[in-house]
Design a protein around this nucleic acid. Sequence first.
DNA 1: ACTCCAATCCCTGAAAATAGTGATTTCACA
DNA 2: TGTGAAATCACTATTTTCAGGGATTGGAGT
Lengths: 211, 211
Amino acid sequence: MINVLIADDHQLFIDGLKAMLLDVPGIRVVAEAGNGKEVLQLCEKTPVDLVIMDVNMPEMDGVEATKTLSKKYQDMKILGLSMHLDRYYISDMLKSGATGYLLKNTGKSDLLHAIHTLHSGESYVSEEVNKLLLNSFFKNPSKYQVEEKLSERESQVLDCIANGLTTLEVAEKLFISKNTVETHRKNLLYKLKAKNTAELVNNAYKKGLIN
Amino acid sequence: MINVLIADDHQLFIDGLKAMLLDVPGIRVVAEAGNGKEVLQLCEKTPVDLVIMDVNMPEMDGVEATKTLSKKYQDMKILGLSMHLDRYYISDMLKSGATGYLLKNTGKSDLLHAIHTLHSGESYVSEEVNKLLLNSFFKNPSKYQVEEKLSERESQVLDCIANGLTTLEVAEKLFISKNTVETHRKNLLYKLKAKNTAELVNNAYKKGLIN
DNA sequence: ACTCCAATCCCTGAAAATAGTGATTTCACA
DNA sequence: TGTGAAATCACTATTTTCAGGGATTGGAGT
């Protein structure tokens, strides 16, 4: 029997998965969480074999939760889940300890296959994800681990910018110099491969760095 | 027996709902669609009583599909569904002919309640949605119907801007004057209540006007 | 101990965006 | 057939962004 925890910020999605897994022999949904913090709390109380972990969640996202979980519970399997095909999140989840990754546009059979494969100790990613990983690996074996990950400060600045603050306003809000904000801004443009603020926010959304 | 069609661009979500509704007496899922066009096609072949319609879909979104459906099939009930609480989409769906609206963070019981209420001929929106509608109605009874809907041209400009094009580049791409693009830009800022480009793109995402 | 990197700060000039006005044409629809 | 909204174009002045160089500090990891 595989004890499963489902973590997603949309209750209806959880309820759907629960119903779907209810009549699958060998799988039992033992808990559900709406964010990363809840996942950690629930895992302390309940024995969980596998977590179906949405990447984008409020409070604490899937990547953070995965990092903590995989350190604490060596045997626990984590299956990453997201809406869009995004190298950044995918590789981040896998590096954090997830051994599987699916997109939400895959179907039931794929999910079941993933669950069983993960439980047997192997890893599993859906076809598109696999293709993406292979591509980026072969094209760019060195830069593969670098990625365009943002620092804490950069994330804060990005958030301010997306909310309409100008460079000066960001500087005031974060108690730093205007010049510093400009540097962060430049680095953000570089890391997210954007020409200007509009594309920056756009790309940030596509990569799930906002919301 | 209520014949239900589920429209959502995430197969896993559809599969979840299907499983959830499978053991509910009186409800039968007869079809599923990944975008608005598929909904229209399927409705021609299969008799459908109620559509669970995600607002954000590729090809043709939920609003467009709802408009067509509600004209063509007077008796068909449409239940709008989205992730975020957004007045623009909600009122748009309801004006287009949907008689119900739920957020994806509501649970199974709410969904069932909505389906049955809609089928009985009444309308149903979840509590948060109701609150939002009441608020905007009382605060702004006149502007209620106006809303910040974008024109075709404005959407094009918005799209260009989000993709990093400058005003001049947009002008060249759309074969119009720089000044015109500036006007559209100003109107976009006004309609989306944004102070600058960054907030514009941000708000556009929140409202689902992009992607 | 050394190195890398995040975070901080600085300067300049050109390019772009924004605010505040104004106007004309076209086209649907009431 | 008139009205209103969308789409088009125009000008000015100020603010903001962007690209291009720099530099220093402190901390984490090897």
